[in-house]
Write a protein that binds this DNA or RNA. Structure first.
Lengths: 265, 265
DNA sequence: CGTCGCTTTGATCATGATCAAGGGATGTGG
DNA sequence: CCACATCCCTTGATCATGATCAAAGCGACG
């Protein structure tokens, strides 16, 4: 039986990539066209396929047009993998993975997915041809670094229960941000093994914690669906703050009326 | 008593910032001048001072010209802080920290340091005025994301002993990369508390593990100094691979002769 | 109906946390 | 030059979070 997060959200969704960026970064019309040009050549992948396997050497990054995927690393000594990231519709993958001699991580679909490759060269060329757009991508990838940092804090200093709640709440926030419409319901097949591998836990312990969360009436597990009963309550319970998912818009960042640092002249 | 990592390395060091980037990214002469211009207005900080406190709202990033510092987050409920990062001479700080309504992390010197602020606006303006340089910075910050990812894997899936060894080996690699000269010896005052806070461990357990590493003759702790006796042996012992610290150069990245992904036409 | 993939549950174990006390080095003021 | 304080490391005893191993349950699907 699979566990899924399903949300009662309904938004009108544009093209995934452009929609994602335009959440915080106002895109000009020609920029949107540009991104549409870049993402040509998309391909369908069945659930459970590896798009990239660590150790391969391709200078390509990917945009997830539809579906969901994970970025992960296998560990030696028969240890479990670690799942770095859950990729949702509209997410990029491949930076900084493909900046190394061979890819550091693998990427695997967890639902049937539609994926578009972009040769890295094209992205790098944007710096010459469309600096504004490049700046927006820079901004975007910096946000990813913030998410990683937050996960690091979670794994190193929070209890299993807190980690799991944070994980679910982060997914909730992100799913709400991309929205659903009737044609594209958001159904994430989250196995407990996946959650365990993302949070550095064992699968049986994830099961126990989920059961106890259910016992506290904070979540429900109905068949294939995990429902967060009261996100506010759960957030308060585990001290969740989603600020790290909400960077400032580019315009705010470029506002040089912001106070300068007092320790410097 | 403080523990330090001291290395028998001797390189000729240029300006920290330019030296750092030029390790992998060939810099043009005018680019070097540009970076020198940006980093004007440096200031001296005594050891143990906070440069940035989380919650503040400044659009400023910093370059560590001399010394060492940490990036950290305090946690609620009387829990320990988490140290995200050790910053060495030549490192940047502030991205993506200052991309949010208020700073997500604090930065504190751990030695006397020389620090130069750069208003974020100036960096973002580079995208318009000096796209090549902007691309190099993009590359640089992507490397940081890779380092975070690797730490995430460490904390979630490796034993305390492995984590500590990885931590020391990573510092060794990074210190070797920036080198020392006689005027600027590399002496990191690493308290065991700091190591604990970077790795999600307790201080007493760090002490125990360091003692056991010493017992195995893998490291020595002589007064203020931690010496790694045989980095090769230690690396093999804990399965350390520093690839994630060595991204490809920009020229390699832009080499479009690389094979394209086989799953796409 | 049987298999497969995933979850649940139990029993036991171990890694590492916590708490507490002591020690060694360094610095500081009298 | 000594007394004291501070900061950090060490060590011991106990505890707990979460791992491991094993077995059973339960849908879903062919």
């Amino acid at each position: 039986m699979e566990r899924s997060v399903v949300l009662p959200v309904s938004l009108d969704a544009g093209t995934p990539l452009t929609q994602k960026l335009s959440q915080c970064v106002p895109l000009a019309a020609n920029e949107i066209q540009l991104l549409l040009d870049l993402q040509s050549g998309s391909r369908f992948f069945r659930r459970g396929q590896d798009i990239i396997t660590e150790g391969q050497d391709y200078r390509t990054l990917f945009i997830l047009l539809e579906g969901a995927a994970i970025r992960y690393r296998m560990l030696r000594n028969g240890r479990r993998r670690h799942v770095l990231n859950v990729l949702l519709r509209g997410d990029f993958a491949g930076i900084p993975d493909c900046f190394f001699e061979s890819n550091l991580y693998s990427i695997r679909t967890i639902t049937d997915s539609l994926i578009a490759p972009i040769p890295l060269v094209r992205i790098m060329n944007l710096f010459q041809t469309h600096p504004k757009l490049a700046a927006k991508l820079f901004w975007w990838f910096s946000r990813e670094a913030a998410i990683h940092a937050e996960h690091l804090i979670s794994v190193s200093r929070r209890s299993a229960l807190e980690r799991i709640a944070h994980f679910l709440l982060e997914l909730l926030t992100r799913l709400q941000a991309i929205g659903v419409d009737d044609e594209r319901p958001l159904c994430l097949p989250l196995t407990q093994e996946l959650i365990a591998d993302a949070l550095g836990l064992s699968t049986s312990y994830v099961s126990r914690v989920l059961c106890s969360l259910r016992g506290e009436d904070l979540i429900q597990i109905k068949g294939k669906i995990i429902v967060i009963n009261d996100a506010e309550a759960l957030s308060a319970f585990v001290d969740y703050e989603p600020n790290y998912l909400k960077p400032l818009s580019m315009t705010d960042l470029l506002d040089d009326a912001r106070p300068q640092h007092p320790l410097f002249g």
